[in-house]
Amino acid sequence: MIELVIDQRRRDIGGFEVGRVLPQAGHRMVGPFIFFDHMGPKAFEAGFPRTVDVRPHPHIGLSTVTYLFEGQITHRDSVGVTQEIRPGEVNWMTAGRGITHSERFEDLRAHGGTMHGIQAWVALPDALEETDPSFAHHDAADLPTYEGGGMWARLIAGKAFGAEAKVKTHSPMFYAHWALEAGAKAQLPAEYPERAAYVAAGEVEVDGHTYGAGKMLVFQAGEPVLFTAQTPAIVMLLGGEPVGPRYIDWNFVSSSKERLEQAKADWRAGRMKLPDADHDEFIPLP
């Protein structure tokens, strides 16, 4: 039932730690998901320095989805969007042929608080890798939810559990958030060929084994998966149809190594537009 267990790898990104889960050497993607970072949890005191912010940087060939449990982020991008990102909302940025954006912690800097969430990247299918860049925001109230039997669930994007989120996606996929009470049981159906679950908090039992926070369970195809919460738990579920092999280099994703080199050259030469509201600094190509 469980094909692979991936441990998060903690790393400091300049003021707080993230747990990198995907890509992983033995399993680079789950469906179209090619990148998965667990941000925090990190408690900030008011007045922390701006060096913690994520300065403007570029993407191609993917969509980013930022989902918060706690905290707030100010998003600014090169298509002219400035958007506050709050817990439970979906913020879906499609890079396509190229976008730049920054992520600022202005509300936390002013008031203090905890940053805790997930940043995931979804690779675009071949025919849409060079689509126009765009950004979509969806309030928490716009997303399908379910509650019962000690489980609360939200479908963040895609189709699953008999529901469909309003978020525009580009290939068959699902992404969901479960909050489980201790003793609650919940089942992940077998409708997609590639599926995984990430334990963001607490402990769950799957197939007779207990898994704690920071573990991603990658499942074999074809069978439903039963979860039993050993403690109160937060579980993120993800997967879908594979989009084919992808290369990743820094913040760029593509089916073509040559396209990655072109994107790096474009960023190095200053040919990618910076956000209108945030153009005084940027992250250089490593």
Results as ranks from 00 to 15, higher is better:
residue 238 L to G: 09
residue 227 F to M: 02
residue 186 A to L: 07
residue 70 E to K: 10
residue 2 I to H: 08
residue 138 H to S: 08
residue 219 F to N: 07
residue 122 V to A: 10
residue 24 Q to I: 00
residue 232 P to M: 00
residue 202 G to W: 03
residue 146 Y to S: 13
residue 249 D to E: 12
residue 86 R to Q: 11
residue 5 V to A: 12
residue 183 G to V: 05
residue 251 N to W: 11
residue 213 A to H: 01
residue 94 T to N: 06
residue 185 K to F: 01
residue 80 G to Q: 09
residue 133 P to M: 08
residue 27 H to K: 12
residue 9 R to V: 05
residue 163 A to F: 10
residue 20 R to P: 00
residue 121 W to S: 12
residue 208 G to T: 08
residue 51 T to F: 04
residue 25 A to W: 06
residue 148 G to W: 07
residue 218 V to E: 09
residue 236 M to T: 05
residue 168 K to M: 01
residue 23 P to T: 05
residue 102 S to N: 05
residue 22 L to E: 05
residue 152 W to V: 07
residue 232 P to R: 06
residue 29 M to R: 00
residue 190 A to L: 06
residue 169 T to V: 15
residue 109 R to W: 06
residue 4 L to R: 15
residue 40 G to M: 00
residue 62 L to A: 09
residue 185 K to P: 01
residue 73 I to K: 01
residue 14 G to H: 07
residue 152 W to H: 13
residue 4 L to Y: 12
residue 33 F to G: 11
residue 189 P to T: 12
residue 215 K to D: 08
residue 246 R to Q: 04
residue 190 A to C: 06
residue 50 R to C: 04
residue 171 S to I: 04
residue 259 R to V: 00
residue 270 G to T: 08
residue 21 V to M: 07
residue 38 H to T: 06
residue 182 A to R: 14
residue 166 K to M: 11
residue 218 V to G: 05
residue 262 Q to F: 00
residue 116 H to F: 09
residue 54 V to F: 14
residue 63 S to A: 15
residue 275 P to I: 05
residue 263 A to L: 01
residue 155 L to Q: 13
residue 49 P to K: 04
residue 12 D to G: 02
residue 182 A to P: 11
residue 265 A to M: 08
residue 67 Y to A: 01
residue 156 I to N: 07
residue 264 K to F: 00
residue 247 Y to V: 04
residue 233 A to R: 04
residue 177 H to N: 14
residue 278 D to P: 02
residue 137 H to Q: 09
residue 46 A to M: 06
residue 86 R to N: 11
residue 45 E to F: 03
residue 147 E to H: 14
residue 201 A to T: 10
residue 100 T to A: 14
residue 146 Y to G: 10
residue 133 P to G: 15
residue 142 D to F: 01
residue 75 H to V: 09
residue 75 H to A: 07
residue 207 D to G: 05
residue 227 F to G: 05
residue 89 E to H: 08
residue 149 G to Y: 02
residue 268 R to Y: 03
residue 222 G to S: 08
residue 166 K to E: 13
residue 41 P to K: 01
residue 110 A to V: 09
residue 270 G to F: 02
residue 212 G to Y: 06
residue 120 A to I: 15
residue 37 D to Q: 14
residue 250 W to A: 00
residue 284 P to M: 07
residue 29 M to V: 00
residue 69 F to Q: 10
residue 189 P to D: 14
residue 274 L to N: 08
residue 259 R to C: 00
residue 90 V to Q: 09
residue 66 T to Y: 02
residue 128 L to P: 04
residue 163 A to R: 14
residue 39 M to V: 09
